[in-house]
Design a protein around this nucleic acid. Structure first.
Lengths: 136, 136
DNA sequence: ATCCCTGCAAATCGTTTGCATTGTA
DNA sequence: TACAATGCAAACGATTTGCAGGGAT
């Protein structure tokens, strides 16, 4: 990821590095707030705005995938920046992203039937994660 | 729809009726703002708040489907209140909803692979609609 | 040394809420 | 008439912007 930044002529600042490390080192699909908290641990003066700006930058370089949810704010995926299906827990917010090979086929089918030229997609399934099912 | 309202012990006001008619009589998946404009034509004193409240009510009665987009606000589908795939035009905002039979199967597959108990989904494909492709 | 990046605060935007007034049932 | 719904304005929460000062290259 740092490569992508340099290559784009962007500076590597400690704050950006911290954001990168969080994105690269977790598969919890963190929210902006969550990323901010973790960065702030290391650099207490960091501002939310910087986190937002960094995420916007990484998104424009296709280094992170933004999962934009209408009522719960966005979550970010730095492990797999290409669009893919997600399962979101309605209770605890956990997000899983199993392989669903049918996704690509479905995008093609959507293009065929709608006449749209599909460029990307967001496939979200909402329900209870295994943990929350138990505690129900 | 009016039946559903009465049945739920809700009053039928002119404003609500106007919202219902717009939802039932168009397949453009209108935004709140768009609905508001149209209602305001007939009842100029109508407030946005009332439109929001009406939509929330209809949603709670499963009479409309809310398509919650992160950066473009929500759009509403009164024709097919059950979750189904949508194609969204990135240029003009047009929304199409062709039948994609694979959707249900995909939900089942997602449940199997993730262990989540899936309750609903939102499957959005983004690209250019046929009209905007021409004008490109 | 340059100019980008940061951090703060204020601005924005869509949506929600509180409350007095109005209108439906 | 009673109580729910409306309409206004203020509140809200997530995200963005403008700008002065600080830091990476």
């Amino acid at each position: 990821m740092t490569q992508a930044l340099r290559q784009a002529g962007q500076r590597i600042t400690p704050q950006r590095l911290a954001v990168l490390e969080i994105l690269a080192g977790s598969d919890e699909h963190p929210s902006v707030e969550r990323i901010y908290e973790q960065v702030a641990r290391e650099f207490p003066t960091t501002s939310l705005a910087t986190v937002y700006k960094t995420l916007a930058l990484l998104k424009s370089l296709d280094q992170v995938l933004e999962l934009g949810f209408a009522h719960w704010g966005s979550r970010y995926d730095g492990k797999q920046p290409q669009p893919h299906p997600h399962a979101v827990c309605l209770r605890c917010g956990a997000i899983a992203d199993p392989d669903l090979p049918q996704a690509q086929e479905m995008a093609r089918e959507m293009a065929r039937r709608s006449g749209y030229q599909i460029e990307r997609h967001q496939l979200d399934f909402f329900g209870l994660c295994p943990d929350c099912r138990k505690k129900k």
